[in-house]
């Protein structure tokens, strides 16, 4: 069997070398297809991070009546904390609210001087696990004893959530489309390569080669091409990250614009896997027609 492996490796290397043009065509097709897919994946990761950071800023403000009793406040507190949609609950007392207010308007003492520290209400700020549940949670808290008003960003937030939802859907569609395009392009290149060598396959059959003996070098070749393609695509994406995203991030600090090197490495392995799977299945399928002699 060791001899066989030697033969397969020799055969793969010499086929790749002798069919340089076909190899180049195949590797560049795989690279371009995987590059497209990788760009969509990285872009998707950046967008998802951005969208999540926006959504993370969505919170409910439950303002309490001044005359709310400590029992009512306590009941409200445990009710809010007991809701499955709720992530975290912060209490802001009248004093804290006033401090916050003073901090916000510290440049205009005229505004703060005229305000009675007691005029601002105490409130609960509630962070949610899923921002989409804001309206439901708000309506449940509204009207509870001690509650004056519940604010949750209303229309503006609904629009933001609608937008982020659309962004996520578009991302999924884009990934499915580019994956589909990559599969078709790569499979087609493999088919062309095999078609160019159909005569060779016929001769192998006639001198008594078993189907596996014919298949293995093609599968090896497909794997090597897929690996090279994934490498080229990942290298280009890494360059794009370093020279594009990282620089943009330096300029725009308040948005999460870039991805870590770890995600690029993960993406390389994902692309490698996708490339190899398509390579192996594509060549096996494409060979089937020519093996039936």
């Amino acid at each position: 069997m060791a001899l066989r492996v030697n033969y397969f490796v020799d055969e793969t290397v010499s086929n790749l070398r002798r069919n340089v043009l076909l190899t180049l065509a195949a590797v560049s097709t795989v690279s371009i297809s995987l590059l497209l897919l990788g760009v969509v994946m990285v872009g998707g990761e950046v967008l998802t991070k951005m969208v999540s950071s926006w959504e993370g800023k969505v919170e409910l403000n439950v303002f309490l009546r001044d005359e709310a009793t400590p029992d009512e406040v306590k009941a409200l507190d445990s009710q809010a904390k007991g809701m499955p949609e709720v992530d975290e609950v912060f209490f802001e007392s009248k004093e804290q609210a006033f401090e916050e207010y003073k901090r916000m308007f510290k440049d205009s003492p005229a505004i703060t001087e005229n305000v009675d520290p007691n005029a601002l209400p105490a409130s609960y700020r509630i962070k949610l696990k899923d921002p989409n549940s804001a309206e439901a949670v708000a309506s449940r808290l509204q009207g509870q004893p001690g509650v004056d008003e519940v604010q949750f960003g209303g229309e503006a937030m609904k629009r933001l959530l609608k937008f982020t939802g659309v962004v996520r859907t578009i991302l999924v569609i884009a990934i499915v489309l580019t994956l589909g395009a990559a599969i078709l392009l790569i499979a087609n290149t493999i088919r062309l390569g095999i078609y160019a060598r159909r005569k060779e396959i016929g001769i192998m059959k006639l001198v008594g080669a078993t189907n596996w003996f014919i298949r293995v070098p093609f599968i090896f070749e497909g794997t090597v091409q897929a690996a090279l393609g994934a490498l080229v695509a990942s290298a280009l994406i890494y360059a794009g990250k370093v020279f594009g995203l990282d620089r943009m991030q330096d300029a725009i600090l308040f948005l999460p614009l870039t991805v870590g090197s770890g995600s690029i490495v993960r993406m390389f392995f994902t692309l490698l896997l996708i490339g190899i799977v398509i390579g192996v299945f594509g060549s096996t399928l494409a060979l089937r027609r020519f093996l039936e002699v």
């Binding site: 066989r4 080669a209 003996f213």
Partner: peptide, 20 residues
């Protein structure tokens, strides 16, 4: 039906390689 990208020696050797 010779393999166009193999030499004379390789074409003949091929029949033996194929049967291991």
């Amino acid at each position: 039906k010779l393999l166009a990208n193999k030499t004379v020696r390789e074409n003949v050797a091929f029949a033996l390689e194929v049967i291991g």
